[in-house]
Structure formats: C-alpha cells, structure tokens
Amino acid sequence: MQLAEKFQFQKQGIKELDEALYEAEFSRADKLKSVLKKYVEIIEKTSYLMQPDVYRLINTEAMVINQALLGNRRAIAQLFINLMEATLQQELESHRRWQGLVDAWKALKKQALVQTFSEFMASERIQAPPAVKKEMESMLKNQKALQQKRLEHLCAVCDLLPPNYSKAQLTEWHSSLNSLNKHLDTYHMDFMMRIRLQYEKTWQECLAHVQKCKKQLLDWKAFTEEEAESLVSPYFFQMVGVLQSKVEDELELLDKSFESLAKQTEWQSSDLFSYFQEAVQLWEAHQSMLSAQDLELEKRMEQQRQKHNACVRECA
C-alpha cells in the first residue's frame, strides 16, 4: 500500500511539473508577443523601414520564435512521457518484486499450514482417540466377564447329564446358553455403534480443524477465497478421507469378526446341545435295554426257582 502511494505521489509530481512547464511556456509566449508588439510600434515610429517591410521582419522573427516555442512544447511533452514511462517501469518492477515476495511468503505460509495440519492428523488423539481406546478397554473387560459367565454356564451342563439328568433342565440350559450368546452378540453390536460414534466425533473435529486452517488463510488477508479453498479441498480433505477409509476398513474387519464369532458360537452351541441330546438318547436306550435285560433275567430266575421248587417237591 505504501509503495502504491509512493508511485501515485511521484506521478502527481510529474503532472504538476508538466503543468508548471506549460504554464511557464505560455507565460513566456505572452511576454514575447508583447515584446514584438512593442518593437513593431517603435520601428513604425522611427519610419526607418516601410510598413510592409516592418511586418515582414516581425513575421520572420515571430516564425522563429514560434518554432522555438513549439520545440519547447514538444520537449516538455517528451519529458512528461519519459518521466511517466520511467515511473511506470519502476512501478512495474517494484510490483513484480513485491508480488514475488508475496508469492514466496504465501508459499511458506501454506507449507507451514500443511505441516501443522499433517502433525495434527498424525497426532495420537486423531490416530488413536482416547475415547475410542477407553471404549475398547471397556469392551474387552466386559467381553471377558460375559465369556466367563458363559463358560461357567457351559460347565454347569455336567450336573445335567446322566445319570442325574432332566430333559426339561437340559432344554432350559440350552435356552439360557442361547440367551448368553445373544447377549454377547448384542453387546458387540452396541460396541460397534459406540465406537463409530466416537470416530464420527473425531471426523467432525478434523473437519473443524480444516475450516480453522482455511479461516487462518483468509485472516492473513493475502489469500482469496478460491486460493484457500484450492488448498483445503483437495489436500486437507484427502488426508482426512485417507484416515477415515483406513478406520472404516478396520471397523469393517472387526464387525465381520464379531459376526463370524456369533455364527461360530451359534453352531457350536447347537452342535453341543445336539451332542448332549444324542448322549441322553443313547443313555435312555441303554437304560431301556438294561431294564429289558433285567426283566428277562428276573423272568428266567423265576422260572428256575419254580423248576427247583418242583424238583424239591418230587423228591420229597
């Protein structure tokens, strides 16, 4: 701004000089005109020359003076042009130097801002948000407790197997096991929802920081809205997008792991219950066979006793 005012002041000085020179030239022309008139009258009074000769002489002198005046005016005009051209050239060179310095300053500022944002994105609070770590630790703790409870329930089946067993109790045990499995699966789904919510807060924080960087560019009064947007939109949003994609892939993998675990637990529980049912059926079949054998044995023993009694009576 000071540089522009300096050259504006210099241009104004050149214009004032030009006006002063023209004013002096017009003043001198008026004075020469008065002098010529004066000497015309003097020569006419002396009657040394005829009047036509006097006018001819004065016209000749006037032409010489006019040529000199025109030459002076051309010189003044050329001086004005030369001074203005020199000033404009200086202004152009100064503007180029100033623009070069501004561009270098803007490049340094953009580089510093990019570095600051890169450090922000690489910070632990963004890469591994404390709230996410807290949710993860809580999930592992609760998951361990639920799995321990499930393990204890699995061990309780030993009290329901033959010979001390009950189909109703075994069915109830299986229903409780399914309930525990579903509870664990529901907890995992709730955890995924909470973890996504925490990451959403992190993305909002990143976007807020992007807008803060853009505002910083505009506050420096050296960047236009388009320049600030051209830096923020492709680069900063890309950095946020890369991290977001990475996290989404990790969450997708974790979600699939939970889903796979739920399916595996479901079919393992079903297979285990089927195994116990088959064991009970086998036990019942074995018991039925043993009962039949007992009855057959008792029947034979009764027959043998009757034969023995008959033999004893015959001998008596």
Rank of each mutant, 00 (worst) to 15 (best):
Q169E: 01
K182F: 14
L151T: 13
L108W: 08
K109D: 01
A122R: 12
K141H: 12
D103G: 02
L151D: 12
E91I: 13
L161G: 03
T171R: 11
S118F: 00
S166G: 05
C158A: 07
E124C: 07
A112L: 02
A112Y: 00
Q115R: 10
W173G: 00
M136Q: 03
D159M: 08
L154T: 09
E152G: 09
M121Q: 09
A104C: 13
T116K: 01
K134T: 15
H174D: 00
Q115A: 10
S123Y: 12
F117Q: 06
R150M: 12
R125V: 15
P129M: 04
I126H: 02
L88R: 13
R97H: 07
M136I: 15
H153P: 08
A107Y: 05
M139H: 12
K109I: 08
C158D: 02
Q99S: 14
A168E: 12
K167M: 13
K133S: 14
L180M: 10
I126P: 04
Q169T: 03
F120H: 03
D159L: 03
Q115I: 12
E172C: 06
Q99R: 13
N142D: 01
A131K: 12
N181K: 05
N142I: 13
A145D: 14
S176Q: 08
W173R: 03
L160C: 00
Q143S: 11
P162C: 06
E135P: 03
P130Y: 11
K106P: 06
Q99F: 13
T171G: 10
I126R: 08
Q143H: 01
R96L: 08
L161V: 09
Q99P: 01
K106G: 09
Q147Y: 10
S166D: 07
V157A: 00
P130M: 08
M136N: 01
A112C: 01
S94V: 11
V102S: 08
E172Q: 00
H95K: 08
L113K: 00
S94W: 06
R97C: 05
E91R: 13
E172V: 10
S175N: 07
S179E: 11
V132F: 06
S179T: 14
K144A: 06
L161T: 05
A107M: 01
V132A: 02
